[in-house]
Design a protein around this nucleic acid. Structure first.
Lengths: 336, 336
DNA sequence: AATAAATACGCAATCGTTGCCGTACGTACT
DNA sequence: AGTACGTACGGCAACGATTGCGTATTTATT
């Protein structure tokens, strides 16, 4: 079986105590240079690595951070993860990624697992199904550092990183208005997600600015964030069956936008002839898509980086942190 | 700071020894039902969770498996990961995902980290840059269970799961031949990757079957597996600058296929007018793409599942395993 | 020469959990 | 009454690494 060598192995091989080995390898001043040399060369030879499990137990930290996202197949999240890793690896932290697949239950399980596994902190983007955050409040109040990104909650006072969703949504909607569309629908994720609220606000503000009345019937929610294709298709069908059919739609989510294009294709809805569309998406293949999608892109990589920097600051702070920040990054509109 | 409660806390609160607490919670027969009840209720009340770090140290296993893939943004890999998780979670294992971004150095670091972090086993798909596998042979011979999927190596005798790459490549190439193309190029990842070799074989066989001579100049390699856009663009440019320009191209990789379409778009190469294309891809948005891509799809989810089942079988085997299997799954051709 | 200080290392406890061994008390049997 | 066994629990060591404290030996200081 797989059994790596330990300090004790080196100690008995070389005739020193484990303390001496440990100190030699950690370069403590009390060990003579010659002894250090002997020990280090031997350790090198047998390719000794300290057991991180034992270190975690001793030092009560694991030098690892847990990440909770909806799904890695989502371009926004995979880019954010790359940002997270870019910082974490540099600082000597390991990254443990978990997916909720937009399920509240899965989110609870994953977070519980990560917490009990002694991650030093958590980077969280809430699942679409999550409306109450008691499972997180509990951990937070016990002192587990956490930073939210993208899908945040007001229930927990900590660092947060989001895109300027309201502005992004405003621009996307206004873009449709400028193109001459007047009956603009809005397809979004579940209602309790922060991004849904903010993007709805931006949508409403754009309508208001241009004196277009807001129609409740034009707003469709997908409680599972588009995890089920049928959810999206039903929403679109309902919109298309309205007496006053919308002539455009603003979609508030990466997966949702793509799914929407799928629905259009399957239902043979032409765009922009039947209905025009803009949507949030970080996909890097949008340029290849037909129909094309004018998109709002979030700075996912930077968001991951900033969230990680914030988290590490809290983790490595010697004193409890009470001063938290909500960082809002700009979005960009790509007209296609 | 975040400090969860321990057996000792319960013990001193209730006046028992830690051994008794431990046994009561693990439902050992030597503890009286009444004592068990008291202890369990208290544990429930304070929401006690055993510390997995301590358990790992004691039991010399972590109930977690490490996954090494090129990048999660690749649809093939994200689907495989979903398959991996679906099995692992059911069996009580945690999944730690790492990305190589096709870098050999990163692969070494990640694997070393996972191994020393006491994962119970490894699911590996090699990076495009990896040509020697000494870092893995070492761990394997020390007894760390590992299963390869997709990008495998012959250097290590263990379970492997791959798609029928040769057949997939054969079908993709033959599809182009049936369409009437005769000068068929082949764009592939780095030459030492198993999938590259197998797909090249399939390509050659299809040519041979239809008496089309194999042209070395028609085969272009991307040593970094398409991680750099320029690599792909240069390869395409070289093909298009040949005296006898190819009239079709078979692309052997998910990322590469998409990148190829990008290059076509950027260089204003029309397909199929200028050049026809087929490629390996597990993207689920291919139907939305323009130009469209006839694709060979691998059963990624199943591959992840099977690899995980194999790995768990080795991990949980009481005796050393010497009988290994190479499972080959069928691919499917989607004509677009 | 006597004392102080520096050098170089070992011992043992600790992190949280588990498991082997021991034992006090009670019950049953010959 | 004496032996045997079962019940219900406690003590202790161990997993691997770290660290405060102790100490033997050498070197420096007055």
């Amino acid at each position: 079986m797989f059994v790596p060598s330990t300090l004790k192995d080196i100690a008995s091989a070389l005739g020193y105590s484990t303390s001496t080995i440990s100190r030699a390898l950690r370069d403590t001043y009390e060990i003579s240079p010659e002894t250090k040399k002997i020990i280090r060369e031997y350790a090198q030879k047998i390719n000794y690595r300290p057991n991180p499990i034992a270190q975690s137990l001793k030092e009560r930290r694991s030098k690892s951070i847990g990440v909770v996202v909806a799904e890695v197949a989502n371009h926004y999240f995979s880019q954010a993860i790359n940002g997270i890793e870019s910082i974490a690896y540099d600082r000597g932290y390991h990254v443990i990624i978990t997916q909720t697949h937009e399920s509240y239950e899965r989110e609870k399980i994953n977070i519980q697992h990560l917490a009990s596994r002694s991650v030093d902190g958590l980077l969280i983007s809430l699942s679409a199904e999550t409306s109450d955050t008691l499972h997180l409040q509990d951990l937070h109040q016990k002192g587990l550092p956490m930073v939210f990104f993208d899908r945040v909650t007001e229930d927990i006072i900590t660092h947060k990183v989001i895109a300027d969703n309201e502005k992004g949504a405003f621009e996307a909607t206004e873009h449709l208005i400028h193109k001459g569309y007047k009956r603009i629908a809005h397809l979004t994720s579940s209602a309790h997600l922060s991004i849904s609220v903010e993007r709805l606000d931006g949508y409403k503000k754009a309508l208001a600015k241009h004196h277009i009345p807001f129609e409740e019937a034009y707003v469709k929610y997908c409680p599972h964030g588009g995890m089920f294709y049928q959810e999206t298709e039903n929403a679109i069908k309902e919109l298309m069956n309205l007496r006053e059919k919308p002539d455009a739609i603003f979609v508030a989510g990466d997966r949702l936008s793509i799914d929407c294009l799928m629905v259009f294709k399957n239902l043979n809805i032409k765009t922009p002839a039947d209905i025009a569309i803009t949507g949030f998406s970080n996909s890097d293949v949008l340029d290849l898509m037909n129909p094309s999608l004018t998109s709002i892109r979030q700075p996912a990589f930077e968001m991951g980086q900033i969230a990680t920097q914030m988290l590490l600051k809290v983790i490595e702070s010697k004193y409890p942190v009470y001063d938290f920040e909500k960082k809002v990054l700009d979005t960009s509109l790509f007209v296609r």
